[in-house]
Write a protein that binds this DNA or RNA. Structure first.
Lengths: 247, 247
DNA sequence: GAGTGGTCTAGACCACGAG
DNA sequence: TCGTGGTCTAGACCACTCA
């Protein structure tokens, strides 16, 4: 067998998307129709569509059909560590963000991020954003209770809660260090529900911690978004001409 | 149907991995054995294993069997933009890196990264690294030809070619800005071959550009690794106590 | 209720890897 | 050569969406 049948079917549909025969938002033929069209079994058609879905080219909806996705159009998360870059953000993409303040008792992963004892009460800001009317990102930002009192109730402008470290700084907290860590992983059940993710999806996570000049973690953020809808950008201006070493 | 059969099978195997009944490197029962064990069809067994493979818990090898993967153990790419962090890197992980210097004529994606005309000749350093004897990461670093002459032949110490911007700086190039962009995407055919990736895998890509004080792109790097084997870390020391604004 | 994708069966043959 | 996973068929029933 030179090329698997399901790959041939996938290639054919991929080509139709590439050359415009099928364009963003269009519904593909139904699975039974594709079975007739390509003279293969339904499993083979499904396998082909699964491949295309994994590639992010199409999206399947139970009971509705399979649709061509918009080209990726990622939203940039510009690192809090960056110099010189504005937060350009969502040019033509509409993103609405909601914040919900509250508090939680620190549990397993949070204790490590915030470097606190299990059970410590922390202020929590839950950011939930939608893009094109659909769930897009989730951010959980935690701040020690005593510092949270210094903050104004945040008005969400960006889905990642960049105003929190700014607010802390404005309130007199002396930030010494910001660190960000980018990984991908399968979503938790909770995240999959909120973000409406299909089975097998992967999220990209940014963990951010802000540390003050006494070494205390004053903010810990966990941002989660579909891996193919986001990019993370870091930028650094190097001091002077040649004096500065890279790190 | 409360929970799909394939999910029940996946849950069961996931549990055995979690509780140590199956441990890293073990071979799972063969598909026909699992068919008997769970009294389901082979497709259902395969579906369950596909889910586990997508989660990174197992790895299937045609003709050999299905094996429990080691826990993720990601390697950190520490941003060139970072302050204060050493390149800690591979503590107990053995990574061998090879470099192959050469040159290429700029094509489609490279022209944008390096901001040069199509067809411009660029020096190219190909980094290929292995971890545990298996392909791990791929980095392509490009430098304008005239600047490449200033560089010593690189001796690869890290898979991401961090020595290239350092070498440029040591050679008197006045770097003004470094920018990094992190995304995930499906691998190219070439990348899938070199990294030995299964179908449907996703890679994490870091694009790095170094710009000199006249705005010229003096280095462009494209690093690619399996998305579940790498993490990207950025860190920034904030100036003074309170004078510095975040960006 | 009609039509969509999601799950599942019981078979079959093929391609790869190792002894 | 043999056992492994990879592909494929032709059917069946279920769950979700929407008119």
């Amino acid at each position: 067998m030179c090329v698997a049948r399901y790959q041939q079917v996938a290639d054919s549909i991929r080509g139709q998307i590439a050359d415009g025969t099928l364009s963003a938002g269009d519904r593909l033929p139904t699975e039974p129709e594709l079975v007739d069209e390509y003279a293969v079994s339904r499993l083979t058609v499904r396998h082909a569509l699964d491949v295309l879905q994994a590639e992010g080219l199409v999206e399947k909806f139970h009971g509705r059909g399979t649709f061509v996705r918009r080209p990726p159009q990622r939203v940039a998360y510009v690192s809090a560590c960056s110099d010189g870059l504005p937060q350009p953000q969502a040019e033509n993409v509409e993103i609405e963000t909601y914040v919900r303040p509250g508090s939680v008792l620190a549990e397993a992963p949070l204790t490590a991020l915030m470097q606190v004892e299990r059970g410590t009460e922390l202020a929590e800001y839950l950011y939930f954003s939608r893009r094109d009317k659909r769930p897009y990102s989730l951010a959980r930002i935690h701040v020690p209770l005593d510092l949270a009192e210094l903050l104004d109730t945040p008005t969400a402008r960006l889905p990642w809660g960049a105003e929190i470290p700014h607010g802390l700084q404005a309130a007199g907290v002396r930030l010494a260090h910001i660190t960000e860590r980018v990984t991908t992983r399968p979503p938790t059940q909770d995240e999959a529900d909120h973000l409406n993710l299909p089975a097998g999806a992967t999220v990209l996570e940014v963990e951010r911690t802000s540390v003050d000049d006494r070494g205390r973690v004053v903010e810990g953020a966990q941002l989660v978004a579909p891996q193919d809808r986001i990019e993370v950008v870091f930028s650094k201006a190097l001091p002077g001409s040649e004096g500065g070493d890279l790190r």
